[in-house]
Design a protein around this nucleic acid. Sequence first.
DNA 1: TCATATAGTACCGTTTTAGTACTATATATT
DNA 2: AATATATAGTACTAAAACGGTACTATATGA
Lengths: 159, 159
Amino acid sequence: MIQLRKDTDLAFFLLRHFLKQPKGFQTSAKSLSESLNLPYPTVSKILKVLNKNSVLESVQGSKGGYGLGAVYEEFSVGQLIEMIEGPIALTACTSSTEQNCVSQAFCGVHPHMELMNRVIRDALMALPLSYLVNKPQRYPKKQEVTAFWKQYFDEGNRV
Amino acid sequence: MIQLRKDTDLAFFLLRHFLKQPKGFQTSAKSLSESLNLPYPTVSKILKVLNKNSVLESVQGSKGGYGLGAVYEEFSVGQLIEMIEGPIALTACTSSTEQNCVSQAFCGVHPHMELMNRVIRDALMALPLSYLVNKPQRYPKKQEVTAFWKQYFDEGNRV
DNA sequence: TCATATAGTACCGTTTTAGTACTATATATT
DNA sequence: AATATATAGTACTAAAACGGTACTATATGA
């Protein structure tokens, strides 16, 4: 089903809470987990990863907590996914980190798999994190999606 | 890693062998598994699914086997993926078959997840199976990929 | 009638994922 | 300086999904 992992899904959910808050907002993993009725260890684990990748920033100690990182706007949906679950790769042989397919030389599918993967990866990398709050909450209309991609190409970007 | 299942990957590999053969070519699962040095049950299982979905056609009994279906050209890469591993859905809530997310009403991420998912799904649905053999075997250049999508939009298609 | 092929179902070991627990470190407050 | 409370990091365990196999039924040419 080409599915995101549950913790990646949750990462989007959590991040959106920070994005919706006023600038400078800070909260602890504990209070966040309580207000959202989610298990603390799970929430904590994800926030740690986001902090390590500078999407969030943290303050340790008493009165500490997490807030949006100064450069969070630089990141994309695709980057967030890769922070949590590693390279976006349809198959192991499309991942740049592990390429141990012995039949790659004669497999023939590889270049096509590369294309499929690049299409998916670039699409996700083109979506900025801010999109999570800046766009309307309703289901996007087909025209809007088309317009997004039209603009993407018109701006000189390439798949 | 948003990964295809191994059997889906293998399905592409197997299908490509049929696509490369002259029209009317027919082979048994057993001989195919032997020539490719793959376990017979695994090969057999996948060919059965492809036959059930009319990508392949089968003849039972002695001298039987599998060959390309009469309408195989109608199918896309995305459809093949869904035949093997079900709906292309980044999360359970983006699948049309199972939508049991209790917090969907207030989650807020949902419409954005829908967009991400549609981008991916439509991209894969736009790639015809014939692409697996019709395009050159080398790694596609960035310009070629761009051209593919340019044409896709120019033809009036929408994401 | 037999040999050989596909069709369908059910099972089990392995791997991955999801969730938890524990220890170390940092800092505001007293 | 001691304490309470937060993050940082690591390691572990239970549950679910996946990969692979085995078995039975059915179809067909020789």
